[in-house]
């Protein structure tokens, strides 16, 4: 139950930050003087989609109690976090200058959130995978060396 709340809410928060952070908090670059959008704008657009997907997976984490389902959700969250990293760093990219706001603040912020998402949900998946109810063997050897207690 505790794991469900923490992991689910964690995904919702991370996803929201990925989706809306570049739009509002750690902003990507404004359009150029001639009104054209720069590359980082499209990274921001892509992150809205990835972020909302992470939010949706997080909501599912909150809804399902089955550990196997949550294990699967955690794994896909870890990979989706990787996708959130891939847009600014490989698939789309950003402005030419390292001193531009997108490269200076927005992308590093996305890096931090993305890495936390990947690592957090990889750890959670590992935890859910390892966690099994204490295995008490059902068969008890009937050879009882000691005399049973009289009642």
């Amino acid at each position: 139950m505790k794991n469900r709340m923490i992991s689910g809410l964690g995904a919702v928060v991370m996803g929201s930050l990925i989706a809306f952070g570049p739009q509002f908090f750690f902003e990507i670059c404004k359009p150029m003087a001639n009104g054209r959008w720069m590359k980082c704008h499209w990274t921001g657009q892509a992150e809205i989609g990835v972020g909302l997907l992470i939010v949706a997976l997080g909501v599912l984490l909150l809804l399902f109690s089955s550990e196997k389902v949550r294990l699967g959700l955690s794994l896909s969250l870890a990979f989706t976090g990787g996708l959130a990293l891939a847009f600014p760093h490989a698939l789309i990219g950003g402005c030419e200058m390292a001193t531009m706001p997108c490269r200076k603040v927005a992308f590093p912020s996305l890096t931090v959130i993305g890495v936390l998402t990947v690592v957090g949900f990889a750890v959670n998946a590992f935890y859910l995978h390892r966690k099994r109810p204490m295995q008490v063997p059902m068969q008890v050897p009937m050879q009882i060396p000691m005399k049973a207690r009289q009642s």
Binding site: V140, P141, Q143
Partner: peptide, 19 residues
């Protein structure tokens, strides 16, 4: 050791409380 421990718990009447 788990099996032996469980049979001892059975003898002292605590098998259901093992975990």
């Amino acid at each position: 050791p788990a099996d032996r421990a469980l049979s001892l718990l059975e003898q002292v009447g605590l098998r259901p409380l093992a975990s």
